[in-house]
């Protein structure tokens, strides 16, 4: 398969396998990895020193770029975004980058407009508003 040539996240061409897979927002990954790290700490001192560089770098990264810290807020974000018939990938890009204007949102997720869904500017604006509310009340 010449998937490499076709790949373009802006048009949501990310391969069937990943399109169907569950995407994770940075804040969700942060919860998962921190939980795993705590488990390792409890099991033995040695286990913590043995974590891979990939794990360590990912943990640092998601901690730095998590928009939402508490688990309830994270769940709400997913619930709200799920109302708008977004693909998993689009949902997570929005959750990660938290665009503040409709134009910004479309620039971040161009596929939101092209897939022929009834995603007008008003709907997007409402979605962004809902998201910023969660942030405010967190």
């Amino acid at each position: 398969m010449s998937g490499e040539e076709e790949e373009n996240a802006a048009e949501l061409k990310i391969g069937d396998e990943f399109l169907k897979a569950k995407c994770l927002m940075n804040c969700e990954v942060s919860l998962i990895l921190e939980h795993k790290y705590e488990q390792l700490q409890q099991s033995s001192d040695d286990a913590v020193n043995q974590v891979s560089q990939v794990f360590e770098k990912s943990l640092q990264y998601v901690k730095r770029f998590s928009r939402y810290k508490n688990p309830d807020a994270v769940r709400q974000v997913r619930e709200i975004l799920a109302r708008y018939q977004l693909a998993e990938f689009e949902l997570c890009v929005l959750g990660n980058l938290c665009p503040e204007t409709v134009e910004e949102a479309i620039a971040m997720v161009p596929s939101i407009k092209t897939r022929g869904r009834a995603q007008d500017d008003e709907a997007i604006e409402k979605m962004l508003n809902d998201l910023s509310l969660i942030k405010k009340f967190e």
Partner: peptide
């Protein structure tokens, strides 16, 4: 898994006159 066309945030690790390197997780 990074994808072509994907937009994400990253941390700058090195800057020189050719450009700069950044890291997004691994």
């Amino acid at each position: 898994r990074p994808f072509k066309g994907e937009i994400l945030e990253a941390v700058v690790t090195m800057v020189n006159k050719m450009g700069f390197f950044a890291e997004a997780g691994p």
